[in-house]
Amino acid sequence: MSLTLRRPASTAPPAAGARRGKVERQWPLALALLAPAMIVVFGVVLYPMGRTLVLSLVDATSALQTAFSFSGLSNYTALLSDSEFWATVWRTAVFTVFSTAVELAVGLLLAQFLNQRIRGQWFFRSLVVLAWALPTIVSANMWRWILHPEYGALNGLLMNLGLLDSYKDWVGGPTQALFVVALVDAWKTTPLVAILLLASMQTIGDDVYEAAAMDGAGAVRRFLSITIPMLKPAIAVVLVLRTIEAFKVFDIIYIMTRGGPDSGTTTIAFYTYLKAFSNQEFSLGSAAAYLTVLFIFVLSLVYLRMLRTDSGGTA
């Protein structure tokens, strides 16, 4: 048996024409309604992006410069051939991998804890969100004082508990400082990760766990075989978001270490800031900013590819 599909008689061309005409009459209204948003997007996104791109291709060395000469890709090649720039890329990568891994691991455990039916659940959830709710400038300053080598609260506490016999410099060496700053970033952002994972965790039905329990699966087995696989899409989203954010880290470093000691915490965003604003090398800074965007774009593509594979091409 064969089927022949025909256009229904009711979808007549005159009606479509009338609709088209109505749409044409309404486009000025639509444009007017969109105009405020378009102006804002142009003003705070498109124009700065375009301006930064132009700056990266010229020789801007003053905030008040009005005439520029075209320098092509020389700013990009200067950066790409600078070992100091690559050192900042490496540090940023270490920071990103370490802080994201800690956030994911601790966030997963926190989400699992917050997903339990326990008394005072609302209290614990509020407590966890507190660190994330603090402005970064506040938490960074707070940790700077807590870890201060001469009068930091952590040293005082550990001395009083008899766990230290003299004050310790927690951000003493360049590598140590990078990991400590990454931990502070993880402390600040883990609650967000936990809340995102918790939201996804709550969509997993109890019946799945009950069936597994009846089959003899213990708590760890249920976590590894049910919770983790079903959280994969949420974990992928968290990874994309946090990797991009961690790669751009600036504020915590500006407050806590200003790139030191021994350049150990000079990440790519801080390096860009130094070039552009401290040294007025606006073109180099702009090129560094675009290279950062390129790195993040590549990372995002990798993650989106992973998402597509895991969710059957729906990413």
């Binding site: 003493g172 060496g173 360049p174 030191g260 000691p261 021994d262 350049s263 150990g264 130094l274 401290s278 040294n279 007025q280 090398e281």
Partner: peptide, 19 residues
């Protein structure tokens, strides 16, 4: 270019004193 010069000297000094 004082700031850039200062940053290079700072990095050199810290490289010795810290690194």
């Amino acid at each position: 270019q004082y700031n850039a010069v200062s940053q290079e000297i700072q990095a050199g000094l810290q490289s010795c004193l810290v690194g």
